[in-house]
Simulated scan of single mutants.
Amino acid sequence: MPKYVMWGSYCEDVLEKRTPYRQAHLDGLAKQKAAGVLVTIGPTKDLTKVFAIYEAQDEATVRQVVEADPYWQNQIWTEYDVKEWIQAV
């Protein structure tokens, strides 16, 4: 199955603004992981960017997953891009 990387940006004051949506976000990630769609996800240390790897049939599926996330829906993630990824090693 194809793999995709997602790079996104966080809003200003992310630690404060994400609080009401954090548990729903984490619950959704756990479901994605259990379903085999999400390989890994996490922020950069400075909390400005998010990086994720997904396994999905196509890019549209990844975009649907990202856009269903409470962080996207509530502007915690302010932008994102998805690219098909070739895992060399």
Rank of each mutant, 00 (worst) to 15 (best):
L29H: 06
P70G: 04
V5C: 06
W72I: 07
I53N: 04
I53K: 00
T61C: 02
I86Q: 12
D69I: 10
Y4P: 08
F51S: 07
G36W: 06
Q23D: 11
E16F: 12
A56G: 05
Q32N: 07
L47M: 15
T40F: 05
V66N: 02
V82K: 12
D58N: 14
T19Q: 08
K33W: 12
E16D: 10
V37K: 13
T44V: 06
A24I: 01
W85L: 11
E55H: 03
L15C: 10
Y21Q: 00
I53L: 11
Q87E: 15
G36T: 03
V89C: 12
D46F: 08
D69Y: 07
A88H: 08
T40C: 05
L38N: 05
P43K: 09
V37Y: 11
G36A: 02
Q73Y: 04
D46R: 08
G36Q: 03
E84K: 15
V65S: 04
P2L: 09
W7S: 06
L47W: 13
W77N: 05
S9F: 11
E16Y: 11
K31I: 06
G8E: 01
I41T: 07
L47G: 04
K31C: 01
G42N: 03
L38T: 05
L15K: 12
C11G: 04
V89Q: 12
I41D: 00
E16K: 15
K33H: 13
H25K: 04
V89P: 09
L15F: 13
M1T: 15
W77T: 13
E79K: 15
T48M: 01
Y10A: 03
Y80N: 02
V37L: 14
A35F: 02
I76A: 05
K49Y: 13
W72M: 09
I76N: 02
F51H: 13
K33A: 02
V89N: 14
Q73W: 02
I41C: 00
Y21C: 05
W85N: 04
E55Q: 09
Y71L: 09
A68G: 14
E16P: 05
W7D: 04
D27T: 11
Y21W: 06
Q23V: 06
W77C: 08
P20V: 01
T44K: 02
A52F: 09
T40E: 03
W7I: 15
A35V: 09
Y10K: 03
A60P: 09
V82N: 06
A60I: 10
G42Y: 00
V82L: 05
V37W: 06
R22V: 01
R22E: 00
M1K: 11
T44G: 00
T19C: 00
V62L: 09
W7N: 11
V50L: 11
A35Q: 07
K3E: 13
T44I: 02
T19S: 01
K49W: 14
K45D: 08
G36L: 07
I41G: 00
